[in-house]
């Protein structure tokens, strides 16, 4: 890990105030609309209440939006020739990806902290363990989507890559049971989609696997989902990053 490189990358992101605002503030705003102000917010779920359930969901959505956009930006930089410049240095692909993932997670921590702080202030209730663990899981799991952003951005190879990657997050968030409670065949299908495992895992300390429709996921289901998608994104990203070195 290269501290100078990572800190300079961080400085670039903090210079982009507009981008930071939308990445960090939008999910918090969603929480206020869908969580803090709904009638059922005090209803009990697992070790806490509905407000907390929505809070974790929105924090997760904010975190993956941040990581996806950072991954996508990395891909755009690379296609504009920065990848060739880095290809002239000893920097290994694996180090580059690891640094970008770390940066993405640092930025992802911002919407998580903001949403959790709002949740604490507006009636989200849960066990101390649920608060701590779900925050950590939101953060750690979001790394998977930094790799996803890199993958999408590298595949699309254009300025639109970032927008495309972030845009697909909204669809995956619906399918991942983040915005509205799913049931029936759609829920069964949802369990195979990329955000489902991550969101279910982040909420597990609160829900212990119980879903709003009363059914229950065993713990291995979200874990297998996350690992499988991590493998798919990781392998594809490494292959595509290698291709990014070659002049097109």
């Amino acid at each position: 890990m290269n501290a100078t490189f990572t800190l300079l990358e961080m400085r670039r992101i903090t210079r982009d105030w507009a981008g930071m605002f939308f990445t960090a503030v939008l999910p918090a705003f969603f929480y206020l609309i869908f969580g803090a102000t709904v009638d059922a917010k005090d209803a009990t779920i697992g070790n806490g209440n509905v407000a907390m359930y929505v809070m974790i969901s929105m924090a997760a959505y904010g975190a993956v939006t941040a990581t996806t956009s950072i991954g996508g930006n990395a891909a755009v930089e690379r296609q504009q020739g920065w990848g060739r410049q880095l290809g002239l240095t000893p920097l290994a692909d694996s180090s580059y990806i690891a640094m970008k993932a770390l940066i993405a997670m640092t930025v992802a921590a911002v919407p998580i902290l903001l949403t959790f702080a709002l949740g604490a202030a507006t009636g989200a209730r849960g066990s101390a363990q649920a608060w701590a663990l779900s925050a950590v899981l939101c953060l750690v799991g979001s790394a998977v989507f930094a790799v996803y952003g890199l993958l999408v951005g590298t595949a699309f190879r254009s300025e639109a890559a970032v927008g495309a990657a972030s845009g697909t997050m909204v669809i995956f968030a619906f399918l991942g049971n983040l915005f509205i409670p799913l049931s029936g065949a759609l829920l069964t299908f949802a369990k195979f989609t990329p955000l489902y495992g991550y969101a279910a895992l982040a909420r597990y300390p609160l829900t212990e696997g119980y879903l709003p429709d009363g059914s229950r996921d065993p713990l291995w289901l979200p874990i297998v989902n996350v690992l499988a998608w991590l493998a798919v994104f990781g392998v594809s990203a490494v292959l595509l990053v290698r291709r990014g070195r070659e002049r097109q």
């Binding site: 300079l8 670039r12 020739g81 920065w82 002239l88």
Partner: peptide
């Protein structure tokens, strides 16, 4: 490089 990209915001 002829087309070696640089990061414009650094």
């Amino acid at each position: 490089l002829q087309t070696g990209g640089l990061l414009r915001d650094l």
